[in-house]
Amino acid sequence: MDRLKFIAALVLLAAGIAGFYVFADLPSVARGALVVVGVLAAGGISLFATEAGAKFREFARGTVAEVRKVVWPSRKETIQSTLIVFAFVTAMAIFLWLVDKTLEWGLYDLILGWK
């Protein structure tokens, strides 16, 4: 039975997309509305009329419950962490620049004699 519902959802989706091209003489807003209606109808059937949709809704509820359990950092902690990351990135950039210039000097000036 779920297979038939998924097929019906695909037919509605295809009908919405086909309507966009079949009714080329309609304004773009109306053609876009056909696609939106097809997508919403297909999504509604898939989400609310099938067992897979029920499992997905349960998964989404569980996900929302888990997100509510997360302890989000305060503004001060976020700013401090961001500043630490910026300082580390700046220090690494300077270090890598120094390594690059040292290797360049050693390779081109000392070994190859290019100036």
Rank of each mutant, 00 (worst) to 15 (best):
F86Q: 13
G43Y: 01
M92T: 00
W105A: 09
E66R: 14
S28H: 03
V67R: 05
I111C: 01
M1F: 13
A42F: 15
E51G: 10
D109C: 03
S46T: 02
I45E: 00
A18E: 11
Y108D: 02
A14W: 08
A18I: 09
F48E: 11
R68T: 07
F23H: 15
M1W: 14
A60W: 06
K76Q: 12
G113C: 09
S74Q: 11
W105E: 06
L112T: 08
V70D: 02
T90K: 14
I7L: 03
A87F: 15
L40N: 07
G38F: 02
R31S: 00
V39Q: 03
A65N: 07
W105C: 05
L96A: 04
V64S: 05
V70H: 06
F86R: 08
L12K: 03
R57Y: 00
A93C: 08
L110T: 10
V64W: 00
A30P: 02
G62R: 07
L103I: 13
V85P: 00
F20V: 14
M92P: 01
V89R: 10
V85F: 07
D109K: 14
P73I: 01
I94W: 12
L96D: 09
W97Y: 11
S74K: 10
L103M: 11
V22P: 00
S46P: 05
L110V: 12
A60K: 14
Y21A: 13
K101A: 12
W97D: 14
F59Y: 07
V89D: 01
A52G: 04
A49Y: 09
K76G: 08
S28M: 13
S81T: 13
M92I: 15
F6P: 03
D109H: 15
I94D: 06
I94T: 06
